[in-house]
Structures are given as C-alpha cells and as structure tokens.
Amino acid sequence: MVLVDLTTGALIAEPDAAATVLEPSADHDMLETAAGGNAGPIAIMFPSFADGRGFSLARILRDRLGFTGEIRAVGSLIPDQSQFLLRSGFDTAEIADPGAAESWNASLAHIRRSYQPSARNPLPLRWNASAKAAAELDRVLAAEDDLVERIKLIADCIDGRIAFSTSLGLEDQVILQAIAESGVTKAGAAVDVFTLDTGRLFPEVLETVELSELRYRTRIRLVVPDAREVEELVTRDGVYGFRQSVDNRKSCCEVRKVRPLNRALRGAQGWITGLRRDQSQARADVPMAAWDEARGLIKVSPLADWTDEQVNTYIDAHSVVVNPLHAQGFVSIGCAPCTRAIEPGEDPRAGRWWWEAEDKKECGLHVADSEQRSAVPVAQEEKAA
C-alpha cells in the first residue's frame, strides 16, 4: 500500500500501523466503536470514486465523535478528490500508482478558496475572509506585550495547522522557547516545527537542533531540497556558482530553500516566523500578522516589534538555547558558504551574501507576494537559455 499525505503531498510507502477498516455502509455504532479509545488509523473504503458516503463518515468521526487520529481513504480514488478528502477530515489517501503522485500534488494545490466550513480548513474561506482574519490577528497581537500570550492568541485565532519555520537564530530560539512554555496544541499535536536543511548548514546549526529538541521536548523536522533539482542546479552553475551572479544565487536559494519551504507549508493555515522590523531596511514594515496570498495562509511574526535589547533580555531571563556561532560574531546565520561574521557596527545582515549590494539581500522566503510570483523557476530559466 502506498499513501499520499493530503497535507504535504508526500508519499508514504510504508504506513506506520495497520488500520481499522470501515465500509461505507458502517452505522453510527460501528463508527463509535472504531473511534472509542482508538488512537490508531481508521481506513474508510471507497468502492468507487462516485460513492460519496465515505466523506460523510469522516465528518462524523471528526465533528461528532471527536476522533483525532489518522483517517485514511482507501479503495477507488482519483486525484480530483484530494482536497475534498482533506476538508472532510481525511489525512491520507491510498493510491494504486505511485507515479500518480504528481497529479495528486497538482490537485491539492488547484483550488485556492472555498465557500463552506469543513472538518479542516486548509483553504481560505470566501474571497476576503482570510485577509480580514489576518488584519484582526495583527491588531490583537499588537495589543498584547507578553510573548507566551501572543503564541496562545495565534493558536486560538488560526483554525488549522500552524507551521513554524526556524533557522535556529536568536529570534527563532526565543519563539521556540515561548511555544514550549505556552503548551499550545492544535488538533492534539504540537505546532509543526521545522528547519530547512539546505545541505550546506554549519555543523553548529545541527548541534543546536539536537540541543533544542532535548531542552524543549519537541521534534524539529529537517526539510531537505529535491536531490534531482540540486544536482541539475550544480551541473548548470557549478558547486560555487551562486557567487558568480545575483541570479545564480537566487536560483540556489530557490532550489535549496524556497521550494522546500513551500512544500513544508502546503496545507498550513498559519506560518510563524522570526522576522523583526529592525533586522534590515527591507523588513522595516513587517506586520505582526498578514495574509500571504501566494501561499494561502496567515503569516505571523510575533517578534515584529521587538528590539535587539528585548530579544537578548528574554534569552538571558529564560536561559534560551543559543547557537554558539553567535558568540563568534555571526548574527544572521544562513548557509555556511554564504555567511560570515560581522564587524562591530555593521548591519546585522551584512554577513549574508557579503559580495552583493547591501540593499534588499533576501533569499526569497520573505519577499513580497508580487516579487514571489514573478520569480523564474530554475527549470524555466534552463528552457529560456
């Protein structure tokens, strides 16, 4: 059996556990028995793709019986059903042909808005409801000074999976400590914490991952780039081709960071970041919360209004786990070949891509929506050449 994760689009070749199988004719007593005290997966059979009874069973399990475990869709399924399965409460779907994974991924990203509530809402409701929700969250967060309370507000206001992408920098470590202290949970699971393992991280970053997992008792997922795309990039530009031009460097960031990030954020309703307004001129207007149209989620920066002094004071007061590179003059830490220590008085971002012009040095993770949509993927650049 091969499953597709309806949240991330990833293939699961070896499911963790056998599932309790329910036929579409299962009555309420059967559903209650399956859900009662059962933490394992429940599989709902679809005899044909035209049989919609399974959608109703999943909604009953989620909404009426409060089942929080994995629900699998098995049987006769087609990619066009993917988002409807997810919104009904399914986590995974059985696919007969692993080669169809691309079609399932395309279907998961096809619909951008919905007009009805569901067991899960990975999609924004109506044309402007999500933008209004983001604006309201921005207002609420700005009125609250305590970071732990801000984290709780984020969990309360965002209905769906919340992802936290951490670089293990000072700001992100502060947020990770606050998440651990807040004890917030969504649908029975902690906020999804992950970091982008570009293949070129400092060893100290990976050591900080391990220490943080032990200290805060949470798993930090390592999200890696597609090996084929990295191979094609290096074949085209060379091992250190990113230093030859800004376009080459942006292509490297696109493959190693932006695409893996977008994959990890797929299906999330909220995205927590460590952006602060005084980190650089390009980030001077960062809101506490805003609707990210390109990714279809609310992007939250709970430290947007914090100063360096506030960050350092929090770190000292809570004995936050800190990357040892910071003590060596590294402020903003990215990939090892692209990061250097800064001199006293230099801009905090001066150590990133120091061979480039000083203004707007971003990797593409936090560019404006209009810039993001205009970015040319590596594959298209190759065709154009």
Rank of each mutant, 00 (worst) to 15 (best):
G9F: 07
G9K: 01
A10V: 14
A13G: 14
D16V: 13
A17S: 14
H28V: 06
M30L: 03
A35F: 02
A35C: 06
G37R: 13
G40W: 01
G52P: 03
F55N: 08
A58G: 06
R59N: 12
R59Y: 03
I60V: 14
R62V: 06
L65Q: 09
I78E: 08
Q81N: 14
S82I: 04
L85E: 06
F90V: 03
W104N: 10
W104I: 09
N105E: 11
A106W: 07
S107E: 08
A109G: 05
Q116P: 10
R126E: 15
E136K: 09
D138E: 07
D138F: 10
A142G: 09
D146K: 12
R150F: 11
L153A: 07
I162P: 03
F164D: 01
L168E: 05
G169L: 04
D172A: 11
V174T: 06
I175C: 01
L176Q: 07
E181H: 14
S182P: 12
V193I: 10
L196A: 00
G199S: 08
L201Y: 02
F202N: 10
P203M: 04
P203Q: 06
E207W: 09
S212V: 07
Y216R: 04
I220S: 04
E229Q: 14
E232V: 12
L233Q: 10
T235L: 13
D237N: 13
V239H: 14
Y240C: 14
G241M: 08
V246T: 15
I272R: 11
M288G: 08
D292K: 00
V300Q: 04
D305Q: 15
W306F: 11
W306R: 12
Y314V: 00
S319M: 08
P324D: 01
P324W: 07
P337L: 09
R340S: 09
I342S: 02
I342E: 08
P344M: 05
P348R: 09
R349L: 04
A350Q: 05
G351C: 03
E356L: 05
E362N: 07
E362A: 06
L365S: 12
D369W: 12
Q372I: 00
K383S: 15
K383E: 15
